[in-house]
Design a binder for these strands. Structure first.
Lengths: 344, 344
DNA sequence: CATTTGATTTATAACGTTGTAACAACGTTG
DNA sequence: CAACGTTGTTACAACGTTATAAATCAAATG
């Protein structure tokens, strides 16, 4: 059996191995390793040198155990949602900047939110950031009784005690999309909605209010849709068999928009020449070279920053109640699926 | 400020809080919580009751610190790769079944593999499972000197000391795709390759050898491609401007195949009526309702199982050197982008 | 020279858990 | 009745780290 490290017995080297090697005391080695001020330049040098030699790495578990603060934020995300991937990346950055670490726990078909959260709690996280949690508000409230909880992208109404919400302004996003289309000259703008999905009601409302604002109340048209390509494709087929075809479509999200695009492509309807399509989320789907979907961006970076700063505020005592719900303004990402209608 | 738990001072309840509440000693409470045999039914009842009341949760960090074994496997994955999402899900299941837990560490544009691994090591993982690692073999070898390392989907040649490899048989996958197309009656089968990407050489080889096996050596045709939709689209355009168009295309991966499909669709070439397309990976892209791509499945579940059992073998001493490289046979998933050619 | 100061370093005690060994309390057995 | 298992319980020490306070030492002061 090959040796696993520079320490004879094959165990992972500890602070006392390090201290012994450097010829100093354990606490001093500790101070050097965590960059505390105090040790002289010479000692620091010796310890770091020794650390290099024996391949010492601090054991974060022991560290966290000792200090009452763990500076660890648990993040629950869904493996299959591209938007969550963007969020997790942004969260790493935001948390790091605030001096916190992140513990990931994934949700998937075979792994429930319950399991995911249990694990984060066992890991001694100081706070939870849940991406689009599906758990009932009551369960979230239970967690919130133990530690700060932030729900990202899932709105809670009424505001649940102790659970902060950070989300995009879905209504505002839909409004921006409509404004953009109207500015291009569109009037017959259809919204394929998301039914009972989180955010769907807001997007519907934003769509309607924007149409009204542009004096197009009589052109408002909702087609039942959903979250998937299939929903989009089905809705698009409905539009095709229709006598009066709209000149623009605002889909519930990118997935749905992709289904719409594909159906149109197969039906030989050119996008954006004959009809414009707008999605929602700015997921990586929208950015695919052959898709280049105009879409409403959710500003993952912003959402992440706000979620983290909310958590930090709660933990470090700067939380104010007027920020229990943080709403981030989304912004339209204009790509190649929108253009002026060929004739108005 | 609202109270955060059932314990007065707002701290997370510990074993001694629990023991005090239940009127027993700390070790006894510990035994109950970890389900050890010994405590009487009455004590067990009392402790569990108390745990319920004060919302006690074992602190996994303290647990792991105490016991020399952590039973923790670190998994490094790429947030943006759908195939990794499938693998992570399968790994949770496989590790759980083997009595191990998983610590996730993500790689993304703003987070390097180096950082990801550092964090896993600090977390006291006993082994690493790296999904398609890009780090140079030398770095992997360094890690392997400290703990068991498994590289999934990235082949290492020569076999790096201490690093196990678990991967799909890329050549066999390509072979299966060609066999399927030939069985349908295709003879002019083009391969859009992946250049220098991991696995590309094997897929190329499998393609060529299968063609040869079917007596189609003179029909072998390679078009330079790559990993993205753009690469596929570019290659497809090359094929379009060509005098003799093939009847089937085997793309390097699903992304590439999607680019091909889209280009054909825009050029009014019907798939699979006029031309068949096969992808590679069986990522969620292939499963999209409007894509339904015939593709070579990588068997995430199998790969995960083998990776975990490899790790367990190393940790528990059942490792044999003849399994340093585990190759899992992929299997073709036939969907709607392949069909017999309209005329041979 | 005794004493204070400031800069380094160290001893000690935690953090929350679990393994080991010891300890009661009990009925059994020779 | 003493020795003996059982069964259930507990004291104690450890895991690797860090916070606190105490100790050391050189230089600077009175």
């Amino acid at each position: 059996m090959p040796s696993r490290s520079a320490v004879p017995d094959g165990k992972r080297p500890t602070l006392s191995d390090l201290a012994a090697r450097a010829g100093v005391s354990v606490p001093l080695a500790s101070m050097v390793m965590r960059g505390a001020k105090g040790p002289s330049a010479a000692s620091r040098e010796r310890v770091l040198q020794a650390a290099q030699e024996i391949g010492y790495r601090p054991d974060s578990r022991a560290r966290l155990l000792r200090s009452s603060r763990s500076h660890l934020v648990g993040v629950q995300f869904d493996l299959q949602q591209p938007f969550h991937a963007d969020m997790v990346e942004a969260l790493y950055a935001a948390a790091g900047a605030a001096g916190y670490q992140i513990a990931l726990s994934a949700v998937a078909a075979s792994r429930s939110e319950q399991e995911a959260v249990e694990m984060l709690l066992a890991d001694r996280c100081e706070a939870l950031i849940l991406l689009s949690p599906h758990a009932p508000a009551a369960r979230l409230a239970e967690f919130a009784a133990q530690l700060p909880v932030v729900s990202v992208a899932r709105r809670l109404r009424p505001l649940t005690e102790g659970v902060d919400v950070v989300r995009a302004a879905d209504d505002e996003g839909a409004r921006q999309a409509v404004d953009h289309l109207v500015a291009l000259g569109h009037r017959d703008i259809v919204h394929i909605d998301g039914g009972r999905a989180p955010g769907a009601a807001d997007r519907r409302r934003g769509y309607k209010s924007a149409m009204k604002h542009h004096g197009l109340t009589d052109r408002v048209r909702l087609v039942p849709g959903g979250l998937t390509e299939d929903h989009g494709a089905a809705a698009a087929r409905t539009l095709l068999t229709d006598s009066s075809r709209p000149t623009a479509v605002l889909a519930f999200n990118d997935h749905c928009a992709i289904g719409v695009l594909d159906t149109f492509l197969r039906a030989r309807i050119r996008v954006p020449d004959e009809i414009s399509v707008v999605g929602f989320d700015d997921s990586h789907l929208a950015r695919l070279a052959h898709v280049q979907l105009t879409t409403v961006g959710q500003e993952a970076r912003q959402l992440a920053r706000r979620a983290v700063s909310r958590v930090v505020a709660r933990l470090e005592g700067g939380a104010t109640d007027d920020e229990r719900e943080v709403v981030v303004t989304p912004h339209l990402v204009i790509r190649s699926t929108t253009r002026a209608p060929c004739r108005s």
